[in-house]
Design a protein around this nucleic acid. Structure first.
Length: 579
DNA sequence: TTAGGGTTAG
């Protein structure tokens, strides 16, 4: 296979170029554009063509070659060819510069993209809306949201360039993908007052943001609004809405929207069918999902890897791993390449069922198939290995990840620290925790809760409490899980007063206790025979509409079995309706 | 040359 690719590349590179050229005229400039789209199949072709182009007279247009290389993701080579052009004194135009800026943005080097701006000034090339739209997208891609907005506002305020629909779309999309849904709506409203009116793209981005936030009412209001304004919704509008409704399990509304779009002659594509299939699978209705898959094939829409991934995940969620694996074999049989998601889904399925040997086999297969395990793969395997107590293997996999794998994220750190604590490796857990704190790694409240829980479970309540106390100081106010973990720690040690004052503290800090909070406290009372406190507490619990969970009920059964007089000490336990 | 929709992990 490889040998054939090389020979095709060499053949393409020596094709006579003149026969593929056309002349064009833009803004009064005449040039020769080479029509090579189907001829440049690999980097070799592109570089060979570049070296032929630089010798041509008159010089042809280079921008399209760069665009082709960007599409092939040969970003570093674009930069070296651009530098070569500069050395050869080949004139640069706005197409080349905009493409190189885009290239740097795609490399996540927006700083380098900005450093090209002086070339525009030196070469007398005016900045245009494309340049700035590309830079704004580059800033968003690196999560530099404030910089993106500052740049956008400066462009408008200083009248450097008039934003078009695409620039607005880029800003609104950047904001929506980073959780600023309300701001996307504000910008849409702002557009209504200006010269550039919101179009279908703008509406679709805002509708999608509301759907992702599960605010389907707001999304449907916008759908009606765009219809009223004479902007007809398209397949993307419907796909966002259908996905949002599927994720909320509102199958009746999904059916309504599906028939509405078909009435408008918009037919569901593989995206929409996959969303419906995924929604059904997540609800455990795989038989229905399989029916939808048959239906789509009947309509001439072929399932792709994401459709199969949804079905595989559905079977994994029901613990039917071997059916999931059969789907995996079927898609390979059909010539569909599994993605890293396919492997992750199966590995997760096997790990959840504690079949870690099978999971490890798939993990090894990933590299053999020319794919690379990603952070999710490592996190899933690490969790699976710790879960079954294969600590040595977990440590080996973690070391492999640190040396040759993807960069660990907060989920990796939480999994490893939790794993260490669970097997009493307190020193290793704390040393990793302190190292991450020193490096100012990204942390969140869930990560700290893992540490607090680990310390509590290993009898280090004071240390856990001091970590808990500093949470608000470092800008991570404890959530209900963090409070529950700390309350559990106090209850395990019999410090019921401290647990109670923690419960009052959470209410004072406007973090409402939940069913777990009360159950943890009740179990603490039972464990330490604090029956009078328990009676007071049970009343508060019932008043707030909470009840015993399965864990408390099991605990209670054991306590009563050992000491039946508990039932006399807590007469409320006879009241079956309440507890 | 620059904007919109689908899958996995703690």
């Amino acid at each position: 296979m490889m040998a054939r690719n090389i020979s095709v590349c060499k053949y393409n590179a020596i094709m006579p170029l003149r026969s593929y050229s056309t002349s064009f005229s833009v803004k009064g400039k005449v040039g020769i554009r080479l029509n090579f789209e189907n001829e440049v199949k690999c980097l070799d072709d592109a570089v060979t063509l570049f070296h032929r182009m630089v010798r041509m007279k008159p010089l042809p247009v280079f921008g399209q070659l760069f665009k082709t290389m960007i599409n092939m993701k040969h970003y570093a080579s674009v930069i070296s060819l651009f530098r070569e052009m500069r050395k050869l004194d080949i004139p640069i135009d706005e197409f080349i510069l905009n493409n190189v800026i885009n290239n740097y943005c795609l490399m996540h080097r927006v700083d380098c993209a900005f450093s090209l701006l002086p070339i525009y000034l030196k070469s007398g090339i005016p900045f245009d809306v494309v340049t700035f739209t590309t830079l704004i997208r580059g800033l968003f891609a690196e999560n530099k949201v404030i910089n993106a907005i500052v740049l956008f506002k400066k462009l408008v305020r200083d009248k450097i360039c008039e934003p078009d629909e695409i620039m607005y779309g880029t800003v609104i999309n950047g904001l929506s993908k980073r959780g600023h849904t309300q701001k996307t709506l504000s910008l849409l409203r702002l557009m209504e007052q200006g010269n550039t009116k919101p179009n279908i793209y703008i509406y679709n981005i805002v509708i999608d943001a509301f759907c992702k936030d599960r605010h389907l009412d707001a999304a449907i209001n916008l759908l009606n609004e765009m219809k009223q304004k004479g902007i007809p919704p398209d397949i993307v509008t419907y796909s966002s809405l259908i996905d949002g409704l599927c994720k909320l399990g509102q199958s009746e509304k999904v059916k309504t929207l599906l028939s509405e779009m078909v009435n408008l002659n918009i037919y569901p594509d593989v995206y929409i069918f996959t969303m419906v299939i995924d929604g059904l699978c997540k609800e455990g209705k795989i038989e229905d999902a399989e029916e939808v898959m048959k239906h789509m094939v009947g309509k001439g829409v072929e399932p792709d890897i994401m459709t199969y991934n949804a079905i595989m995940d559905g079977y994994c969620l029901r613990g039917q791993l071997y059916r999931a694996k059969r789907i995996f074999d079927v898609l390979i049989g059909k010539g569909i390449e599994p993605s890293i998601f396919s492997y992750n889904i199966l590995i997760n399925g096997f790990c959840k069922e504690k079949k870690v040997a099978e999971a490890m086999q798939l993990f090894v297969e990933i590299s053999q198939k020319g794919l690379k395990p990603d952070t999710v793969t490592y996190n899933t395997i690490l969790h699976g290995l710790f879960e079954v107590g294969r600590i040595g293997d977990a440590k080996r996999v973690y070391a492999e990840m640190l040396s040759v794998g993807p960069k660990p994220n907060i989920c990796t750190h939480s999994t490893v620290i939790d794993g260490y604590f669970r097997y009493g490796l307190v020193e290793e857990a704390m040393s990793l925790f302190k190292k991450l704190e020193r490096k100012r790694e990204n942390t969140n409240i869930a990560f700290y809760t893992v540490v607090i829980n680990g310390l509590c479970k290993n009898g280090k309540l004071d240390e856990a409490h001091s970590v808990f106390e500093k949470l608000s100081l470092i800008g991570l106010p404890p959530d209900v899980r963090a409070y529950n973990t700390m309350i559990t720690g106090f209850c395990l040690q019999g410090l019921l007063d401290e647990a109670n004052s923690m419960l009052r503290k959470m209410e004072k800090n406007r973090c409402l206790p939940n069913n777990v909070t009360y159950n943890v406290f009740v179990q603490g009372c039972l464990r330490w025979s604090k029956f009078s406190e328990m009676r007071t507490f049970m009343k508060e619990m019932a008043d707030r509409g909470f009840s015993f969970d399965a864990s408390t009920a099991g605990f209670l059964v054991n306590v009563v079995r050992e000491n039946p007089s508990v039932l006399d000490m807590i007469p409320e336990l006879h009241s079956k309706n309440k507890y």
